[in-house]
């Protein structure tokens, strides 16, 4: 096989191969391009959130009123504090990650181990916080009535404070029972019922003169419209259809169901990224402990997962703004 050409004769020339025009390794470059495509996915979600919000701009829930809880502080109105805490957890885990990358450049194995460990803890803390946020949102707090047209009616007292439906609904004995599989002739059961039926809420509303209805539509001042007592009675008896407690993909006691849909989808997709980031970090963490990169002579793998981890933080910065602030 003497005729086989071993060399192309173009070594050292620009197009001769073996060049790294962007001066980054293959793996790092591919991580960057993955991040670009993932950023486009997330911006697609956030842009469609903006689309739906602009579409229903006069009836979109105010995030400050939706996320007002803080763990162990029951009944305390604490808008934003919890999500600010989550943001700090994530930014801080980003800091420990970049410290791990820096220690990796200096080939300090024990420091990399420590900082990777702290990063993993931060990631787990963030996912846990998000689970709590979801649970609170799903559970709801005051309850509301959905109209036939799918609009949400919330209840206020005459001072303008929110009233939970449990506080005024009258109990009608035997109004409704959940159909469980054990009672049926066939293997059928129905989904969880709300604590009160619409009839019970309506009866309680008519019996209490000091309760008003607040619709989702914003008035000139940009606040949800509060109806007078007379209008409230008309609205509830003519349009009311069912009771909503908490939020799921179909109903949302805080306002438009699309708000809940986008909340679950975007924060869920982001939480999934954090979760997979934690898994990848754990794998790299064990590789560091085993000395894989020490033997390889380079901690570039830590840098690559670091890029992904910072990207997750970057996305959260935008989710935080567009879901909670704007």
């Amino acid at each position: 096989m003497e005729a086989t050409v071993v060399k192309t004769g173009t070594e050292g020339k620009t197009w001769g191969g073996g060049n790294r025009p962007l001066r980054a390794s293959y793996g790092k470059l591919m991580m960057w391009f993955f991040i670009v495509s993932d950023a486009l996915t997330f911006s697609g979600f956030l842009a469609s959130y903006g689309f739906s919000r602009f579409k229903f701009i006069d009836a979109w829930p105010i995030a400050d009123e939706v996320f007002t809880h803080f763990p162990f502080l029951h009944g305390v109105e604490a808008p934003m504090y919890y999500v600010a805490l989550m943001t700090f957890i994530l930014i801080f885990s980003s800091v420990t990650m970049v410290l791990a990358v820096d220690a990796g450049h200096k080939m300090q194995k024990n420091k990399v181990i420590l900082y990777m460990f702290l990063t993993i803890l931060g990631g787990i803390a963030f996912v846990g916080s998000q689970a709590w946020e979801w649970a609170t949102f799903i559970k709801g707090d005051y309850g509301a009535v959905e109209t036939k047209g799918g609009r949400i009616l919330q209840f206020l007292n005459t001072e303008g404070e929110r009233v939970a439906i449990a506080d005024f609904a009258t109990n009608i004995p035997g109004a409704r029972e959940t159909h469980a599989e054990s009672n049926g002739v066939w293997y059928q059961q129905e989904a969880t019922q709300t604590t009160f039926t619409f009839e019970e809420v309506k009866a309680g509303f008519l019996a209490n003169d000091d309760i008003l209805i607040r619709t989702q539509y914003l008035n000139e001042a940009g606040e949800p419209t509060v109806l007078s007592r007379e209008e409230s009675i008309n609205k509830l008896t003519n349009d009311g259809a069912l009771v909503v407690e908490g939020a799921n993909l179909r109903h949302n006691e805080y306002g438009h169901p699309l708000f809940a849909d986008f909340f679950f989808f975007i924060t869920g997709f982001h939480g999934f990224h954090v979760f997979s980031g934690v898994i990848i970090n754990i794998i790299i963490f064990f590789n560091v402990i085993l000395g894989t990169y020490e033997r390889r002579g380079s901690y570039e793998m830590v840098e690559k997962v670091g890029l992904y981890w910072h990207f997750v933080d970057l996305v959260w910065v935008f989710v935080f703004t567009f879901f909670y602030l704007v």
């Binding site: 911006s43 842009a47 469609s48 689309f51 919000r53 602009f54 701009i57």
Partner: peptide, 16 residues
């Protein structure tokens, strides 16, 4: 991203 956001927000406002 700017292009996508611009188009979707204009369209959303139009539907409103």
């Amino acid at each position: 991203i700017c292009y996508l956001v611009l188009i979707l927000l204009i369209e959303g406002d139009y539907i409103y």
